[in-house]
Simulated assay, not measured.
Amino acid sequence: MQGTFQMDTDTATLCCYDLASLEHRLQDTPDWWSIPDDELEEVNAGHCLFLNLGEDGTYEVHWNVQETVLETGSEAEPRQRYYFQVPSGTVYLGAADDVSGGELEPDELSQGVFLQLNSGNYACTVFKKENQISVTIQPSD
């Protein structure tokens, strides 16, 4: 499964998470994740990935979901790799402007896509060059 989408962000951040992982943040303030301790808590727990893009703007995101389990050291080119949990299978990949909070969740008007994945642990490999972002998601031990 793969695709491409464009997103505009005013937070200079891309996020990736299973909606069930952040249900407990729905009643929190809309910008809860801008508090470093709160962001770090969720990232360290494997609930969400927040990827700093360096600046606001419009980005083209190329995403690819692979079915094979990640083999460590199998990439020829070094990339940034992050890990997260998928409890429900409904994963949002898009602008962090739309992250769950303030009694809102991402929806069809959000700056991103919804991916249907099997429950489990995943690795997310990211490569950014200018306004082009490549994201590969695959199962991980």
Rank of each mutant, 00 (worst) to 15 (best):
N64M: 09
W63Y: 15
A96P: 07
G89V: 05
T90L: 14
A95I: 05
R79I: 12
N64K: 08
E67R: 09
V86S: 11
Q66R: 12
E71M: 07
A96D: 07
V99K: 02
G73R: 04
T90C: 10
T68Y: 04
E77G: 00
V86G: 09
D97K: 02
R79W: 01
G94T: 03
P78L: 09
P78E: 14
E77Y: 08
E77C: 07
Y83K: 10
Y59H: 06
R79S: 13
V61Q: 05
L93A: 02
V99W: 00
P87L: 08
Q66A: 14
Y92M: 04
V65K: 06
G89P: 07
W63A: 02
V69M: 14
A96Y: 00
Y59T: 02
A95P: 03
D97P: 08
Q85C: 04
A76L: 14
V86A: 09
Q80S: 14
S74Q: 12
E75S: 14
A96C: 13
D97W: 06
Q80E: 15
Q80N: 13
V61W: 04
Y92Q: 02
T72K: 11
T68R: 12
Q66I: 03
Y92N: 04
V65E: 10
F84T: 08
V91D: 05
E60V: 07
E71W: 00
D97T: 11
Y82W: 05
P87W: 03
S74Y: 04
P87C: 12
R81W: 00
T72N: 11
A95L: 00
L93I: 01
E71C: 06
E75L: 12
F84V: 08
A76H: 06
Y92P: 02
Y82F: 15
H62A: 14
T72C: 06
W63S: 06
A96R: 03
A76D: 13
F84I: 05
Q66D: 11
Q85Y: 08
E75Y: 10
E60H: 00
D98Q: 03
S88A: 15
V99P: 01
A95H: 00
A96E: 06
T72P: 05
W63M: 03
S88H: 04
E75H: 03
N64Y: 00
E75D: 14
E75A: 09
E71T: 13
V86P: 12
E75M: 12
G94Y: 03
E67S: 14
T72D: 13
S88T: 02
T68L: 06
Y82M: 10
A96Q: 04
Y83F: 15
Q80T: 13
T68I: 05
V99D: 07
Q66M: 12
G94W: 00
E71S: 13
V86M: 09
D97R: 02
T68C: 03
V69E: 15
E75R: 14
V99S: 15
Y59N: 02
Y59C: 07
E77P: 02
V91K: 08
V61P: 04
V69I: 14
Q66S: 12
A76R: 11
P78Y: 00
V61E: 03
Y92V: 06
V91E: 05
N64H: 05
T72Q: 12
